[in-house]
Design a protein around this nucleic acid. Sequence first.
DNA 1: TGCTAAGCGAGACGGTACGTCCCGTCTTAAT
DNA 2: ATTAAGACGGGACGTACCGTCTCGCTTAGCA
Lengths: 198, 198, 198, 198
Amino acid sequence: MERTGRPRDPLIDDAVRDATVELLTQVGYARLTLEEVARRAGTTKPAIYRRWRTRQHLVLDALGRRLGTNTTRVPDSGCVICDLIGGITVFVTVFRRVPPGVLGALLTDCTGQPGLRTAFMRTLFEPARNAVGEMVDRAKARGDLRADLDRDLAVDLLGALVHYRALFAHASTDSESVTSAVMTLLRGMAARKLDHAH
Amino acid sequence: MERTGRPRDPLIDDAVRDATVELLTQVGYARLTLEEVARRAGTTKPAIYRRWRTRQHLVLDALGRRLGTNTTRVPDSGCVICDLIGGITVFVTVFRRVPPGVLGALLTDCTGQPGLRTAFMRTLFEPARNAVGEMVDRAKARGDLRADLDRDLAVDLLGALVHYRALFAHASTDSESVTSAVMTLLRGMAARKLDHAH
Amino acid sequence: MERTGRPRDPLIDDAVRDATVELLTQVGYARLTLEEVARRAGTTKPAIYRRWRTRQHLVLDALGRRLGTNTTRVPDSGCVICDLIGGITVFVTVFRRVPPGVLGALLTDCTGQPGLRTAFMRTLFEPARNAVGEMVDRAKARGDLRADLDRDLAVDLLGALVHYRALFAHASTDSESVTSAVMTLLRGMAARKLDHAH
Amino acid sequence: MERTGRPRDPLIDDAVRDATVELLTQVGYARLTLEEVARRAGTTKPAIYRRWRTRQHLVLDALGRRLGTNTTRVPDSGCVICDLIGGITVFVTVFRRVPPGVLGALLTDCTGQPGLRTAFMRTLFEPARNAVGEMVDRAKARGDLRADLDRDLAVDLLGALVHYRALFAHASTDSESVTSAVMTLLRGMAARKLDHAH
DNA sequence: TGCTAAGCGAGACGGTACGTCCCGTCTTAAT
DNA sequence: ATTAAGACGGGACGTACCGTCTCGCTTAGCA
């Protein structure tokens, strides 16, 4: 389909995305105003609204570009412990690349807008999970992880821990802490075989 | 310290807190305006600002009252599986009692305000963790959980899962899912004994 | 100069001016609030501030419109006494058309704002004076008034009296009082020729 | 009648009056806040309200003290021109002693409060008029002014001119201007005898 | 001399209105 | 036809100040 009329200036797209990320890191999501984004990008608000329907769409797009579209993968080390640590690292990397606190606020702002929520999940949630899921599959195939282990649950246990600690910052996500968590997840928390007959 | 000047009208305190919770459930955190809170509470903005320094302080206080100050406890069932499920339930309850999305947004808004962040942790984060932590201690004392299990890590693994699923809503936090997670945490994910010599 | 951007809604201009005059007559200048003006005009404060820099500018403009931009004139009756009474009437009319007390308060509020003061003079002060000044010129040309009479002084003597009595309301500005003043001004107060050698 | 209870601190009365006059000269009547008066006087608002019912009462009292309660008099020079100039000077002095613009604003604020208005007149309006009135009486007795000259009108013509020029500042009230006005008032404005048969 | 109560000082309150930031949209001129 | 840009109408903000209420203290007059 052909487009008519004046073509959109592609430089504005980038300038706005850059200004958005810059502002996010400087003042955070809550104090991000399109007025200031437009100012820093050297353009105006209508030009932004023409490209992104809402502030949420803009931030999501800007962050998505920053995270990169190149498929994330967990390197296959052959060692399940190393693989799991690698999996956690994938999650940690997401938080390293996104200004602190933005994820939670953005997610909240997506409440009630299904399309936006889907986009959020596809951009900031699923890529890392898919990479870790594949890693789990490989480890199961190798016989390193239980055959009856639920793939999604495994991914959740790893991802949740990172998310939780990154969000509340009550505990570290560094290598040592992460290794400790991995060992516990592998060995289990139980002291002996247990039944649950209730 | 002396108390002087006209005393604050305690009815306003309650009316504002109630109006805040009501608005949070109706329009969410992002669209909560102090103007509307004041209107519904039958008072004015200055009266609110006199009591709570910021919107965040107000919301935190209102939610804290709603969660109750009565100490949360995990009932001691004697069965470690039941106890762990009970522990998870404590976390789930927090989310059930707080309007959806508020926790994340509020936490984000606390960024950069140490005092506020501390208050947030004390009100909405630590009570549930302490209750679960005590449960873990009991199970360890009974010999149901590994003696070398790190208490905070155990609490994290339970709490993180709930938080993660409640936030992203990609998986359930119902009884069945929770039991499955508990069993995996107890038994561990590994198919056999593993070494990590890297 | 180019005109760009969304044009101002002229209906708002009129609605605000009308609401201003209405409020002035009902509650006076001191209790005039832009909040109430906006409410009655069915608009908001920013829309008002966009049009008038301050409350003073608004009131001045609203009154100016009400007084009319049509040039005031003193009818040429051929009789100097009638002309002078007509001149005084012009001054009286200004006070009749402006809510009581507004002139003084507005003038006071213009203190220290040269631009505003100038606008005040141009709108509420000079038109009547010019009209009376022309009348004085005509009477002098006819030989009814002294050839050496200072035009501005003559205007002052008439205008001051009206202003003084309107403001303090200690004496009337009705036809009889005014005639009496005119006769005194024409004849002079002295009982006989006087010298001043001090 | 005897008073019981703790006596009022007389130092506060003076401190508040002084602070009021100070503020009036610095920021004018419109920006005079009791909050700031109290601050500068080293006291509090209730202490002020206990002494003066309203801001107007306070300002009026403070100005009244400043003008002095000593009866104003126009010196009897024997020369009617000098006397009239002296009369005008009495009016001018009032404005010299009162911060500019305060008179008009205060008068406006007295609208609708009969008691306050009366106090205003007694304090700031009548003393000067009485002094000039006496001067007119003397000049009439001497045969310097017309026997049929209305005393109040004569006072008005002098007072109005000063008030008018002081308020609008469009003309001077210095000695030369004043002499010119006095000569015109004495001689009259008419070029010849005039009849008014309309 | 000690007691009582009226009135005082001071501080904080409940509330009105302020002037401003920012939102999301509309209009014009240019491409 | 569609863009870039400027200004608009309007919602909500956080604050200055108003006039008042409450408290604890001071002081005069009575016991």
